[in-house]
Design a protein around this nucleic acid. Structure first.
Length: 266
DNA sequence: ATGGTTGAGCATCAA
């Protein structure tokens, strides 16, 4: 089974790109982030025609997550226990940043769009840390219930866990994505039993999943590794290959993120 | 000029 995760930065703007990607890479299950649409705004017929079941979750114009699967899609969930909300009772804007389903042979795949954090002194940053802790708690819960659980947390984590995961640490002084609390929150999920499934097959430095549209970051090879697939021990044992599809960042109309692909023999 | 784009939706916010 081939699974992938991709921050698509508007599914409506890139439906044809996604269909072409699924075909070109023969992907069975795709976790999508940053749909930039509510589900009722989406036309999913191209995916359904290609044989994919679709589960989408979105509540505003900025976020939104989804899963496409041609190997089954059951027991869809869109939240975990203790998931924080933002903003706290201020504007009433709701968020939709996670969705999961059982795909293939008993694999629970989560598509996560971790809050950006914005600035270190912004409330969104504290929200991000609490949000990541809720993911950790869900991971611990799943492993406590079943040590052989097949669980993957995939998506845009908006954290660069290592110094080598950004092109220049000096450029990130005082910025989010590289701070120790964010890295500790990411490591806590790993330490709960969910290893990075891709890094062993695509080691850094200089290996990224995101390049800002601004300042010619992609041609200058100035990117960040912030998209991951973290898997439970049973999934770790099933990985046979993984890669970052940097080609999808090329050309007119690309997302600012590249897809991350993992091959499993469960 | 802090180095300047993209998407959603229509002024500006988010990333």
């Amino acid at each position: 089974m081939r699974i992938a995760t991709w921050n698509i930065n508007s599914l409506r703007a890139r439906t044809e790109r996604v269909v072409a990607f699924l075909e070109r890479r023969d992907v069975d299950v795709l976790a999508l982030q940053e749909l930039k649409a509510r589900p009722e705004q989406l036309d999913l017929s191209a995916f359904e025609a290609a044989g994919y079941a679709c589960a989408m979750h979105g509540l505003n114009q900025w976020n939104g997550v989804g899963i496409l699967s041609r190997v089954g899609l059951e027991d869809v969930r869109t939240e975990v226990e203790a998931l924080p909300t933002y903003p706290e009772d201020e504007t009433g804007v709701l968020e939709a940043r996670m969705i999961s389903g059982i795909v293939g042979d008993g694999l629970r795949l989560w598509s996560l769009y971790v809050p950006n954090g914005r600035e270190i002194d912004h409330p969104h940053y504290a929200y991000k840390l609490r949000w990541l802790d809720a993911v950790r708690a869900e991971g611990e819960r799943a492993l406590a219930a079943d040590p052989e659980t097949r669980t993957v947390f995939a998506g845009d984590f908006n954290v660069a866990p290592l110094d080598e995961d950004v092109w220049d640490m000096a450029a990130f002084e005082g910025a989010t994505h590289v701070t120790e609390p964010e890295r500790a929150a990411f490591r806590a999920i790993v330490d709960a039993g969910y290893a990075d499934l891709v890094r062993p097959y695509a080691p850094g430095p200089g290996v990224y999943t995101y390049w800002d549209y601004q300042a010619l970051r992609f041609p200058k090879k100035e990117g960040m590794r912030i998209d991951f697939a973290l898997g439970s021990p049973a999934v770790q044992r099933a990985v046979v290959d993984a890669r970052i599809d940097r080609d999808e960042r090329k050309g007119k109309g690309a997302s600012d993120h590249a897809p991350v692909i993992v091959d499993l023999e469960l």
